[in-house]
Simulated assay, not measured.
Amino acid sequence: MTTHLDPQTLAHLQTWQGRSETLEDLITPAPLRALSATLDRDDPLPAAGTELPALWHWLYFLPHHRQSEIGPDGHAKRGGFLPPVPLPRRMWAGGRLQWHAPLRVGDALKRVSTIQSVTHKSGRTGDLLFVLVKHEVHNADGLCLTEEHDIVYRPAAQPGDPMPAPVAAASMVGQGAPLVQSGGNSELWQRDIAPDDVLLFRYSALTFNGHRIHYDRTYVTDVEGYPGLIVHGPLIATLLVDLVRRHTNRPIQRFEFKALRPTFECGDQRILRVNGQPQADGNQVRLWAQDHEGWLTMQATAELG
């Protein structure tokens, strides 16, 4: 089982820097209806011209690998556009997005993706490889969205591996310059979600994500060594943005998020809590997610238009 990358392998992987691919897709309404239901929203039915909420473009440009091309973890076998990193764990670590113009139902889209960097670091449990991918999404009128996507590859878990110290989510309250209402109480948005296996399955189906860590409890516990099904990082980011939408109609122009700790499904009635705190400038919202033990699992910032 690979835990270290030799210099020759690393040099080969770094030849992927600068590689690019272009995909095309059409924004259709059916995935929007399905995600709205999955997020427990009562949205009007989308029609031609309906604007996509922030992050809902992740329902498009989906991977369509043939079944014979799928690896044992449910992901496509390594290689192709992304480098064939031999480390077994692959995770969406975070990203940064900027919207230049709305995406709407009926738009024909083109996405140009480029591997910006392939960076090696040594971690406590072995080598880490970080791949930065830049996506640029265009419609007929030009560039609509720029997205930087952070992917991290790491070794499989081993007994006795050191674990980073968790951070209490409560420490996030009041950081920065929160908006102060009359009476001296800072505004705090919160919503609790039960991330059960049905929610995870529906999101996997919507994003055509075959990664077994999100729906195969035997695989994720026996092979990858986790205590339960893992909640998708993009789903948590989407729930953070959805929290903003539940409190303001202002559009999100920029969004940045970082995954800090895995969140596991609620086989024992676990709860995922998403939090938001508007800042004093009126244009930013600090966001974070916490698990059932109160540990910080994701932090983010949304800049409003």
Rank of each mutant, 00 (worst) to 15 (best):
G79I: 13
G79F: 14
G80E: 01
G80C: 13
F81S: 00
F81Y: 10
L82Y: 15
L82R: 06
P83M: 13
P83F: 14
P83G: 13
P83R: 15
P84D: 05
P84T: 05
P84H: 05
P84L: 03
V85C: 13
V85K: 09
P86E: 14
P86R: 13
L87Q: 04
L87E: 02
L87P: 00
L87Y: 14
L87M: 08
P88S: 06
P88W: 01
P88Q: 04
R89W: 03
R89T: 07
R89A: 03
R90L: 10
R90D: 01
M91H: 06
M91V: 12
W92T: 03
W92N: 02
W92A: 01
W92I: 03
A93W: 10
G94E: 05
G94I: 08
G94S: 05
G94Q: 09
G95E: 07
G95L: 03
G95V: 04
G95W: 03
G95P: 08
G95K: 06
R96W: 12
R96S: 15
R96I: 10
L97T: 15
L97Q: 14
L97W: 13
Q98E: 15
W99A: 04
W99C: 00
W99Y: 15
W99H: 09
H100F: 07
H100E: 06
H100K: 07
H100Q: 12
H100D: 04
A101H: 12
A101W: 13
A101L: 11
A101F: 14
P102H: 15
P102F: 14
P102Q: 15
P102N: 14
L103P: 07
L103T: 08
L103S: 11
L103A: 13
R104K: 14
R104V: 10
R104E: 08
V105G: 05
V105R: 10
V105S: 06
V105A: 12
V105Q: 07
G106S: 07
G106E: 05
G106K: 08
D107I: 04
A108M: 09
A108Q: 14
A108I: 09
L109R: 06
L109E: 04
L109S: 08
L109V: 07
K110P: 02
K110G: 07
K110N: 12
R111S: 01
R111Y: 00
V112Q: 05
V112S: 03
V112A: 03
V112F: 02
V112D: 05
S113H: 00
S113G: 01
S113K: 02
S113Y: 00
T114V: 10
T114Q: 04
T114W: 00
T114C: 00
T114H: 00
I115G: 05
Q116A: 09
Q116S: 09
S117N: 12
S117D: 14
S117G: 13
V118I: 10
V118M: 09
T119E: 15
T119W: 07
H120C: 02
H120V: 06
K121N: 11
K121Y: 08
K121H: 12
S122H: 07
S122V: 06
S122I: 05
S122N: 09
S122Y: 00
S122F: 01
G123N: 03
G123Q: 02
G123Y: 00
G123D: 00
G123T: 02
